[in-house]
């Protein structure tokens, strides 16, 4: 496996990682909101939509459950997230290996079958399983550091983004922040935006947890800018 990456491929690796992680985290998150609907007002989904900036165009909780998972036209549906992961992954076969790509194929197949059968959320468990298998295969097969680094950066960034939006406890977010995202950024080839990189370092290292939503938003924006500047 070669270690050279074009700008277009770097971008695809980054977004592949983000979408795969978004599918996994979104499925986990929606399970919790659907669960709270059982005992609550049946409108918890509205809060969920608000946190993830999803336009609430759903008639009710049932409509939300169906469309958030399967709506092929909606950019925010899990189905579309998976299609976006696939669209990036299919152009990266030689970088991520056929085996890694196969887990996205398999998840798509489950999603299509569940869509046709209007299946329950629990029937989508294999999709989550395949996303984890995808990461296992990446760890096993992607042996070139530059590619692995971009994948890890995308995955970590997505984790922070979703967790901040869902107001997950600070310790979990901090763990991801301190767990290597700076290293991922610094390992990107040829620093072209040194100011942003320094600001990012400052934000991550000095961050205490207060106002973490705003700070993390700046961190995410900063990483996106640094990454884009290096393409």
């Amino acid at each position: 496996m070669n270690s050279l990456i074009s700008a277009a491929k770097a971008n695809r690796l980054f977004w592949l990682a983000r979408y795969v992680e978004r599918v996994f985290l979104s499925l986990n998150a929606v399970k919790k909101y659907i669960d709270s609907d059982i005992d609550g007002s049946a409108e918890s989904y509205k809060e969920f939509c608000g946190l993830l900036s999803i336009a609430d165009s759903y008639a009710d909780a049932k409509d939300f459950r169906k469309k958030f998972l399967y709506d092929k036209a909606a950019v925010s549906s899990v189905y579309r997230m998976l299609v976006n992961a696939f669209d990036n992954g299919i152009e990266l076969r030689e970088d991520i290996t056929s085996e890694s790509l196969s887990y996205i194929h398999l998840a798509m197949e489950v999603m299509e079958k569940c869509f046709v059968n209007s299946a329950r959320l629990s029937d989508l468990q294999p999709v989550s399983d395949y996303m984890l298998s995808f990461w296992g295969s990446i760890d096993e097969n992607v042996i070139t550091l530059p590619k692995m680094n971009i994948l890890r950066l995308g995955r970590r960034l997505e984790t922070i983004d979703i967790n901040v939006r869902l107001r997950t406890d600070w310790d979990s977010i901090n763990e991801t922040l301190k767990g290597g995202i700076l290293t991922n950024v610094n390992m990107l080839p040829s620093v072209t935006d040194k100011d942003k990189a320094l600001r990012l370092k400052e934000l991550v290292e000095s961050h205490s947890g207060e106002n973490h939503g705003e700070d993390c938003a700046e961190i995410i924006a900063c990483i996106n800018q640094v990454f884009t500047a290096r393409l």
Binding site: M1, N2, L4, S6, A8, I90, E91, R93, E94, S98
Partner: peptide, 13 residues
Amino acid sequence: SYFAEKTGAILAT
């Protein structure tokens, strides 16, 4: 893409 994977060549447009 399969041959790029198997030969270690770069797949380019």
